[in-house]
Design a protein around this nucleic acid. Structure first.
Lengths: 313, 313
DNA sequence: TTGTATGCGTTATCAT
DNA sequence: ATGATAACGCATACAA
C-alpha cells in the first residue's frame, strides 16, 4: 500500500491505523534486497570545511531530495584508500551510485568502476570511459582571466597553480599559455609555480615569485585560498594590491569577498554543478541509455578590487 | 566459508578460485537482513571544519575499525530536522547505532530513541535515560580555569559562554560561580555574556564587555574560537593581552596555539572522547547488559601566553 | 566434511 | 479489490 492504487478506502484506513497502532517501521533492508536498489547515493568529497564543496553538496542534496534519495556525504581528506573503501559500498550493493568531487583515483580505476556502477565526476574530470562529469571549461576560464589581465595592461603575468597531477591544472595552464600566445607574450617557466589549493601554499609560492629578479606585475591563482595567501604575501613584502601587483583568484568562494582587497576571481556555479551532477547520476541509475558525457557549465569573471587598469610604466 | 573452520583445503581453494574467476562480490544487503545487523554506525556532527569534531571523529573511526564497523560521518549543520532524518536510519534498520556530537535534540526525544536503539552522546550530554554519554567534567573544568585566574591575582573575571540552551554552558557557569564564591568574589551578571561558539560572537561580546563602566581584567571563554575573537577585540580596542586583559579559552584546538598570544585553555581529550564513545556504543550494541552512564574523561589546564601573574593595581 | 532446506522483511506476481 | 506465494542473497541449522 505504498502508492494509493486500487484499494478500497476502508481497508486502506484499517491498515493505516494498525500501522500507527503498532508504530510499524518498515525494515528497509528487506525492501532494498527485494528491489535491489537502496535509494542511497554516496558523495565523496575531499573536505567540507571549504565552502566550495559545501555549496556543491547542497546542490546535490536538493536534487536528490526531489527523487527521494538518501544522500550520504563522505569526507575523504584526499585519501585515495578511503575513496576506494567507499566505492566498495557500491560493489556490496549498499548504495546505487557515487558522485566524486575532485577524485584522486586514476582514469583506469574510474573506468573499471564505471563499467559496473554509476559514477559522476565533479570539478576534476578524467577522461575515464563509462563515467560522466560536470565542471566548467577550465581552459577557457583561465584564458578569460589572463586575457583580462592583458587587457588591463599587464604583460608580466605569473601563474600559481594547483597540484600538477590534476587535469584541471593542466587545462588551466593551457588557457594561460593560449592567452599569452595570443598577445605575443613569451612564456616564462620561472613565473609558473604549483602547490596545494590552500592559503599557505599561496603565500609561500608568492614569496618565491617576489624574490625573482624580474617580479611579475600580476598573478593568476588557481583558487581563492591561494589568492588570499598571495595577497597577504604581497602586502607583507611591502607592495600594494592591485597597484604594484594585481591578483586574480578562482572559484568565487565566500572568502573572495572577505579579503582585503576583495578578489577578482572566476566564478564557478557551485550549486548548479552539484545539482547537475546529481541529475546526471539519477539519469544513469534509472535509465538504460547511459550518458557518458563531460558537461561543462558556464563560468564568469567577477571583477573586484584586486585588479585594476595598469598605469603606464 | 567466511572463517576457515572444518572444510577440506581442496574444496576451499576450489571455491576461492571460482570466487575470483567470477569476481564475486557479496551482497551485503542479504547478509545484513539475515543477521539483522548492518555493522554501520552513524556519527552525527554539527560540522567537520572545526578541528575538535574532526579529532573526535578520528577516535571514533579508529575504534570502529578495530571491530570492522562502517563509520558514516553525517554533518548536520546543527539542524535538528537533519538529525531526526538521520535517526530514522536506525528505525529503518539501516544502521546499528549512533554517536551524536553536541546533539540539538531534547532529553525526551533522545530518551525515546534510546529505548529502541543504541545511542551515545558526546561533548554535550543531556541526562536522557536509555542513553550514555562521554565528555569531560565541564563544571570542574570551568572551576579550574577561573580558580587559576584568581590565583594569578584576578578578581574582575568575565565569562563568555556558549548557547544558553546547552547543558554544558550551564555546568560551566556553575563552575565559574563556585570558583568566585570560594574566594568571596561577588557574581556580576553584567560580566556574563552568551553566544555561539564562533570567532565572531567572541569578538562582539568582548566589545560589549570593554564598553562597560567596570572593565574586567580577565575573560574566560567557552571555546578557543571565541577566545581568539576575544583577543582580537581586545587588541583592536588598544588593550594588551595578557597585561591589560587576560584570556582563557576552551578545547585546546589547533587554533589555540596559532593565535597571538597563544591561548591558555582547557584541554579536552578529543581523540579519547571519540574513542571512548565508540567503545561504549560497541558495547551497548553487542551486549545485553547496557551501560547507561555518563563517562567523564579528564581535562587539563594548559597555560600559554594569554594569561600571566597580575601586577598589583 | 559436505549438501540442503528454511527464514530474515519486503515487494511483485499470480490467483482468487 | 484482496489474499496467497515466491523470490531477492545470505547465514544458519540440520541431515547426510
Amino acid at each position: 500500500m505504498n502508492e494509493s492504487s486500487l484499494v478500497k478506502e476502508e481497508t486502506r484506513n484499517k491498515v493505516l491505523s494498525v500501522i500507527h497502532k503498532f508504530n510499524y517501521q518498515p525494515n528497509l533492508l528487506g525492501r532494498d534486497l527485494r528491489r535491489s536498489e537502496t535509494m542511497k547515493v554516496l558523495v565523496l568529497t575531499p573536505a567540507l570545511e571549504q565552502s566550495i564543496f559545501a555549496d556543491i553538496v547542497k546542490g546535490i542534496e536538493d536534487r536528490g531530495k526531489e527523487d527521494g534519495y538518501y544522500v550520504l556525504v563522505c569526507p575523504t581528506s584526499n585519501h585515495a584508500n578511503r575513496e576506494r573503501e567507499l566505492f566498495q559500498m557500491l560493489q556490496h550493493r549498499l548504495a546505487d551510485g557515487v558522485i566524486v568531487i575532485r577524485s584522486t583515483l586514476s582514469k583506469e580505476e574510474l573506468s573499471g568502476l564505471g563499467q559496473k556502477h554509476s559514477i559522476v565526476q565533479c570539478l576534476e574530470i578524467t577522461d575515464a570511459s563509462y563515467t560522466c562529469g560536470v565542471s566548467i571549461d577550465d581552459e577557457q576560464a583561465a584564458f578569460d582571466a589572463v586575457s583580462r589581465l592583458i587587457e588591463l595592461g599587464h604583460r608580466r603575468i605569473a601563474l600559481i597553480g594547483g597540484p600538477t597531477l590534476n587535469n584541471s591544472t593542466r587545462l588551466r595552464e593551457q588557457g594561460y599559455r593560449r592567452a599569452l600566445n595570443q598577445s605575443d607574450i613569451p612564456f616564462r617557466q620561472e613565473w609558473v609555480k604549483y602547490g596545494d589549493y590552500d592559503h599557505h601554499d599561496g603565500e609561500v609560492l608568492t614569496n618565491e615569485l617576489l624574490e625573482l629578479q624580474h617580479v611579475p606585475s600580476s598573478i593568476f591563482c588557481m583558487s581563492d585560498s591561494m589568492a588570499i595567501g598571495c595577497v597577504n604575501a604581497i602586502s607583507k613584502a611591502g607592495y600594494k594590491v592591485p597597484e604594484d601587483v594585481a591578483v586574480i583568484g578562482f572559484d568565487n568562494t565566500r572568502e573572495a569577498t572577505m579579503s582585503l582587497p576583495a578578489l577578482t576571481t572566476i566564478d564557478q556555479p557551485k550549486y548548479d554543478l552539484g545539482y547537475t551532477a546529481m541529475n546526471l547520476l539519477i539519469h544513469n541509475m534509472t535509465s538504460t541509455e547511459k550518458i557518458y558525457e563531460h558537461v561543462k557549465l558556464t563560468h564568469q569573471l567577477i571583477e573586484r578590487a584586486s585588479t585594476m587598469e595598469k598605469e603606464k610604466e
